[in-house]
Design a protein around this nucleic acid. Structure first.
Lengths: 323, 323
DNA sequence: CCGCCATCTGCTCATATGAGCAAGGTTGCC
DNA sequence: GGCAACCTTGCTCATATGAGCAGATGGCGG
């Protein structure tokens, strides 16, 4: 009878969801009372036979967000649906859009926003709407790309975000990584630079992304690091970088010497921040996302469905079934 | 505002379908009246953003069935869902199961069932349950595989179906295709054979499948035709065969001479039958399925989702979207 | 064979939802 | 600017649905 019931619940579901019949009508078709039909339907849902998906570029995954918040102790989590998306491009764009939405809806509006830079954040800046906030002071929290071909990307991102909020942008006039420790110390203590760093330390919110540990990193692109150096970092356990600093899966600095030469706010500071928003999307970034979240580097995570599952340690898509 | 509404409808859908909130609750979350929420939800559904799928091996596609019935003038159509199925194997098994279910539920129970043979029908026979009907006389309607390595498949199918219905099986003691027309005529007029053919002509229902026109056909396997002959048939427009007879996309006999040498009931007779059930599944059989249905060779079609769409002339999966 | 526990069934009643309507607001046209 | 057609909004009311409960059913040990 258990088997018959399962089959009946499928028939009922077909009539209910595909033919828009009422439970009562289904009852007379299948020769059941309408209460039985209701129960069969509930059973079908509970067994996972009914799959409801919201197919839209802006769709989110509320249950996953909840799980992330609860399991990882996050203040908030934004997970965009990857339903029907194959390429990472699209995924990143959706996530950036979601980050822009989240920023826009943030209350209270942060007075000062500490900002990192990268492809992802640039994408976020593009998605923000003019007037998204009434005046925000944007401060760079790590050294910019100045050696790069794509010069000014870092500055552009900060300026655009500030401009769209009718606020001001404060740029950090320094390279991301210095070759010599002394140089770094010197720059750091320069009045102009120190002032910016201090502003950054006092920011009411942080927004940053993460890079995976491989040669595609913007830090390599910009000439701060060589592919060989990255390889070595990977050897030593690096899964990716945030604000220019490479961490391993436990969230620890991989190469303290290198880190010392990296200019910008420290991870310790980031960990203490009451509002640190990480925007991380894409198949390549599961490991770094996991490291960031589990080591408490962010209080808010904006990401895609697959990355969220990876962070939670779920195997991606193992269907519960009982046929 | 239209854009805002779309976004809102997505947010509402998330809360409604993923968080099981009531429209009223959603109203207070999104600062809308509950009626607005209801309308947004309706809009989201209408725009196709809400996709509801029944994930179960026995799930059917009622709306497709209706379209098939109406557009193709069928008496009934059974379409099994291909949700989450990748291989043809599984698809065919599901379809065979559905055919067995349909047969079992047939009222009035056919007194005499004209039966073809093949992998698909064998599969159907396996899925039928002992006692599926109280006595059915099964009659073969085309010549069996007797030259084959898998000798007796045709007979086994008929016997098993009859046995499971506590009925009797009448086998057609003849090859499917004869080499010489005279031989065919001779066999055909043999008392024993003629009697079976007559029984077949008087059957109250027919059940048959179809083969695609390529070298994988059971007719090649059994030695009735060579791969080269099939190639030639394809050249002449053959899309597949039913009851051993090759037809083109318009349902006409491709090679009248060959057809003359094929022993079994004629397509004309099949077209006149009030109950002719075709069971056709799999990616390879879209063309033959289309030919069978559009030329009125069956009154009932049991098939899979993708084949059904092909029969209807729909491009498989073009999502309506409006982002 | 009897009664007990567990499950299943059909019900009442509260709640959630959708249809339809009238009022208010908007758009476009003169 | 004024008017009309249209659309949107908030409502009433009928209907559909789910929670919870009492009685029926059925398997099982005593």
């Amino acid at each position: 009878m258990i088997d018959t019931d399962e089959l009946l619940s499928i028939r009922a579901a077909e009539l209910y969801y595909e033919e828009n019949k009422t439970q009562d009508e289904i009852g007379s078709i299948l020769r059941l009372t309408r209460w039985k039909v209701g129960r069969l339907l509930a059973q079908a849902k509970a067994s996972g036979f009914i799959r409801i998906e919201i197919v839209h570029p802006r769709a989110r995954r509320l249950p996953l967000e909840r799980r992330l918040r609860e399991a990882m102790g996050l203040k908030a989590a934004i997970v965009v649906s990857s339903a029907g998306v194959s390429d990472d491009e699209e995924l990143q764009s959706r996530t950036a859009q979601a980050a822009a939405d989240y920023l826009t809806s943030l209350r209270p509006i942060p007075r000062t926003l500490g900002l990192s830079w990268g492809r992802t954040l640039h994408d976020v800046s593009l998605h923000l709407k003019q007037g998204w906030a009434p005046g925000v002071n944007v401060v760079q929290i790590n050294g910019g790309v100045s050696l790069s071909k794509r010069t000014g990307t870092a500055a552009t991102t900060a300026v655009m975000i500030a401009e769209k909020a009718s606020g001001s942008a404060t740029l950090l006039p320094s390279p991301a990584i210095l070759e010599r420790l002394e140089t770094k110390r010197a720059i750091e203590s320069d009045r102009a630079v120190a002032a910016v760093l201090n502003l950054g330390i006092g920011a009411s919110a942080y927004l940053y992304s993460a890079g995976q540990a491989d040669a595609s990193s913007a830090l390599v692109d910009s000439g701060y690091l060589t592919a060989a150096q990255i390889d070595e970092l990977v050897q030593r356990g690096a899964v990716g970088d945030i604000v220019g600093r490479y961490i391993d899966s436990s969230g620890s600095i991989v190469d303290p010497e290198l880190d010392e030469r990296t200019l910008g706010i420290s991870l310790t500071h980031l960990r203490r921040a009451p509002l640190a928003i990480a925007v991380i999307a894409g198949r390549q970034k599961h490991a770094i996302a996991r490291a960031v979240v589990s080591s408490g580097l962010c209080t808010v995570l904006v990401t895609d469905e697959a990355t969220a599952l990876a962070v939670l340690g779920d195997t991606p898509d193992s269907e519960p079934h009982s046929s």
